[in-house]
Design a protein around this nucleic acid. Structure first.
Length: 478
RNA sequence: GGCGACGUAGCCAAGUGGCUAAGGCAGAGGACUGCAAAUCCUUUAUUCGACGGUUCGAAUCCGUCCGUCGCCUCCA
């Protein structure tokens, strides 16, 4: 049973999708006017992991992420660079995929764009006007928050509370200061579309209500995004969608915490942001991903290079064990010496049980990683034991151990394992390294340390690492 | 001003009423090794921001205070 924290109810709830074995989820994607920073990357990785886990648990997951490719910021940026707004948006969509791929984020099932759903949006706005939830002023259309009774239910505040502390600029034309634009009339030279209210473009919030319900149905299961979207973006999405359809919008709302720098929120306005591609120059994609998953998704996560470096080493520990399993599996079975196979199978069962119970509890990736570390330790102890003599059964158990680690840490958490490390996929390299190992063994027998060390050093320069163990010399690619 | 979150070892981080407070990184000592790498063992919080309270029992519940941060405006 999966439990997840629902922002709507402010508590952990058992997850029950509307249709058994099928999950429909929507995650707010970026406004494509520049490259994404680490704060933008967190929801990508978090919800990608949620999706992978749901799939692992047997759900058929339909996963939608939008691109906001029409927006004031895009227009502004395009004017600065003196290029077409659409071209700018397209450029950053392709840049987005480069970063997402580097973080091992799987592709969504659809990436709807605002620019391709103008008709749907206009139809929804019409409907809201007809139902008296919206009104037209001078070519703009506003949503009337007072008409929607439940306004504020997601962010936990009432309209009157918000009014008292309002920092909102009062627009005297609006019926309530918190009324927000569904349609904005365009100024000359701005990208625009024809509508019953004149030339203009959609407001920010309506796109998500329209596109999510178009692809997922009027009621769907999970809606995700960063915690800063709770108000007003998601609050407004709910108001529009439920006013329009008279159905519940999303059942479960999930929000990730912020990335901070020196404990302050990483944001474009503060200027304290680090682009994903900048970080990727120093650290691998799966190190960044591992770091993002080292803390529970709802907690704040502070960024600095030392923390990345720390996580890089932690991750290496898991990869070392995976390599050790691979190296051992490449050996031929020998006469067995007992029940190390059973011990291994027991560890595998323990890993699966602990991993699932951690992830079932609101996707506790930090705890799931602890289970992976304990498993790695068990494998290291077993394989490095002096009396370890893998027989056929033991090798079979080891194969299951490797496959399980690959499936959980790789397939769900997204760690990249080089499955071909020492596998026979490259027979020639394998043979050549084997020859060098034998030559070096002879040198070592003769205490010719210069030759032995030269072989080891030169191979290291080629990306091949030799490790001497009581059971012979192992090798792996670095 | 309104609403909310957080404060666990040198660092990162689980744990939200009950065995000796997970796990990782770093440090110290040891084992293995010709050296190295990897690995293993031991060690590192009598204590969970502070002070009170509830309880047989609290890091975990309640209160007060201190500190940090967030949302209320574009933001993942």
């Amino acid at each position: 049973m999966i439990k997840l924290y629902n922002t709507l109810t402010r508590q952990k709830e058992e997850f029950k999708p509307g249709e058994p074995n099928k999950v429909r989820m929507y995650v707010c994607g970026p406004t494509t006017y520049n490259c994404i920073h680490l704060g933008n990357a967190r929801p990508l990785v978090v919800f990608d992991t949620v999706r992978r886990y749901l799939k692992y648990k047997g759900y058929d997951v339909l996963y939608i992420q939008n691109f906001t490719d029409i927006d004031d910021k895009i227009i502004k940026r395009a004017n600065e660079e003196n290029i077409d707004a659409r071209a700018l948006a397209e450029k950053y969509i392709s840049e987005y995929f480069k970063d997402a791929d580097a973080l091992n984020v799987k592709r969504a099932d659809h990436y709807p764009k605002v620019s391709e759903h103008i008709d749907d949006i206009i139809a929804a706005i019409k409907k809201l006007i007809d139902k008296d939830y919206a009104y037209v002023i001078d070519g703009d259309v506003y949503f009337n928050v007072r008409k929607y009774e439940d306004y504020g239910k997601l962010s936990g505040r009432s309209l009157d509370e918000m009014k008292s502390g309002a920092r909102v600029q009062i627009d005297e034309r609006k019926k309530d200061p918190l009324d927000f634009a569904l349609w904005k009339s365009s100024k000359p030279g701005e990208p625009s579309w024809d509508s019953p209210w004149g030339k203009g473009r959609p407001g920010w919030h309506i796109e998500c209500s329209v596109m999510s319900t178009k692809y997922l149905g009027e009621t769907f299961d999970i809606h995700g995004g960063g915690a800063d979207l709770i108000f007003p973006h998601h609050e407004n999405e709910i108001a529009q969608a439920e006013a329009c359809t008279d159905c519940q919008f999303a059942r479960y709302w999930m929000h990730n915490g912020f990335i901070t720098v020196n404990k302050e929120k990483m944001s474009k306005s503060l200027g304290n942001f680090f682009l994903v591609r900048e970080i990727l120059q120093k650290f691998s994609g799966d190190t960044v991903r591992f770091y993002l998953l080292s803390t529970h998704y709802r907690s704040p996560l502070d960024f600095d290079n030392e923390k990345l470096a720390m996580n890089e080493k932690s991750l290496q520990r898991i990869k070392n064990t995976f390599a050790l399993l691979e190296q051992t599996l490449n050996k031929k079975p020998v006469a067995g010496n007992g029940d190390s196979g059973n011990r291994i199978l027991k560890s595998v069962d323990q890993l699966v049980a602990d991993f699932e119970s951690a992830m079932d509890d609101d996707f506790n990736t930090a705890l799931a990683l602890a289970a992976v570390f304990e498993f790695c330790k068990e494998m290291n102890i077993t394989i490095n034991d002096e009396s370890f003599r893998p027989d056929k059964d033991t090798l079979q158990a080891l194969e299951k151990a490797r496959d399980t680690l690959y499936k959980l840490a790789g397939g769900i958490l997204g760690i990249i394992f080089k499955a071909e490390d020492t596998a026979a996929s490259d027979d020639l390299v394998s043979e050549l390294v084997q020859i060098l190992i034998e030559v070096r063994q002879n040198a070592r027998k003769n205490k010719d340390w210069t030759t032995a060390d030269t072989i080891r050093d030169r191979l290291k320069e080629c990306g091949i690492i030799l490790e001497d163990s009581p059971q012979g010399t192992r090798w792996k690619k670095s």
